[in-house]
Design a protein around this nucleic acid. Sequence first.
DNA 1: TCCGTTTGCGTTATTTTGACACAAACTAAC
DNA 2: GTTAGTTTGTGTCAAAATAACGCAAACGGA
Lengths: 228, 228
Amino acid sequence: MKPFHSYSNPALAIDLVVFGYHENELSVLLLNRKDEPFKGGWVLPGAFLQMEERFSDTCSRVLRTKLGMDKLYLEQLYTFDELDRDPRGRAISVTYFALVNPSRLEFSAGTMANDVQWFSVKKIPDLGFDHKIIFKKALQRLRSKILYFPVGFELLDEYFTMTELHELYETILDISLDRRNFRRTILASEYILPTGTKREGLQNRHPELYVFNKKLKKNNFQLNIPLS
Amino acid sequence: MKPFHSYSNPALAIDLVVFGYHENELSVLLLNRKDEPFKGGWVLPGAFLQMEERFSDTCSRVLRTKLGMDKLYLEQLYTFDELDRDPRGRAISVTYFALVNPSRLEFSAGTMANDVQWFSVKKIPDLGFDHKIIFKKALQRLRSKILYFPVGFELLDEYFTMTELHELYETILDISLDRRNFRRTILASEYILPTGTKREGLQNRHPELYVFNKKLKKNNFQLNIPLS
DNA sequence: TCCGTTTGCGTTATTTTGACACAAACTAAC
DNA sequence: GTTAGTTTGTGTCAAAATAACGCAAACGGA
């Protein structure tokens, strides 16, 4: 399939903001560039759109290469069009944000491609291109989204404790939430379901394990986390 | 500025969903195509991105041509990438939605380009390309946006009555809202300010006129319209 | 067994919401 | 002008949601 224009079109890049949550820290996946421009600097992982590709195909290509996993939660974020965002020439960037539970990845931190690394969202280095702006927009989106959408689905293990879910929300929103009010609200929505079981290995541990309610219609769902 | 790719890139279209509000009706601007494909059919107004153009420049070009006005409220909606969305070949569409008070336009219904027309959102004809999907997404966005963002700024006259604002919300959301609760909520937020004046021309009209509060930080603003 | 911490369950005061009553201001018809 | 019906501004009240926090059982480590 060819473009039907006689004149040339801007290059089309797909850039990804991949969020990972692990041990009370929210991180983003960054790539260390091997080539100019920004050689040696950090950028968001991305690739150019191929002619016959859907955006999600390009995302999968990048994710598979860098994380060994391609079926993540993906959501289109925004399309950036500044004229000088790429020093090589006009390039449009369609950006996505992805959520991943790092413990589910094929590549663990040790075996990951040596040009990629997780960075805490609180310690993001300077980024090439306009990627700092893209990152900020993604974080903003995640923070507003978590208030009304069950984002934890993608970031926690299948079984998790109330404390873990509570800490996920505190970490992402970067505020403290009353533990007891949080519990009440979350349970009143049918966001998660109690399993009645305790964590294995620990002989008689107290905290109950929960699972996400798969029967939930993710669409018209409304959470409304109490902010205190 | 040239693209720096050796291989060719997809064409990049900018398509606009322009909403207008007039006499308790929410309408969308549609264009009647003069050429194939979809000759004679209705589509959203749009244009191809030129090499040195920002998206907003392309939007302005389209708006100026069709409405004689280019400084509207504009918001990027979504970028569509289906492979077969344009029968002529691969074309990506970056879509925007715009809000207009038709009474502020240079071109009134009579003097508008004869290939454009307002259609009530309740009576949208079949649309070419994937434009029906784009339209639906825009309407959805407008409806969710109005619940927490002062959208009326763009759709009403400078001075307006409480009833007019109330009816705007009812029309866009397509539900009925309790007049008295709506008033209470809107006034409690500082979304609008009373002017203490009455409408001119009508010697002693009762309904008070309001203006939008320009000092409002449009960012972290939260409305929360009561839905009853 | 003791002690500090975590977890589950509850109470209470305050605020917000939803539903609606009522009278003053207005318009149109006579 | 007077009258009748409508629109507009203000207030009330019960129910629901929110915010703040008490307490004891379950737990882990010393």
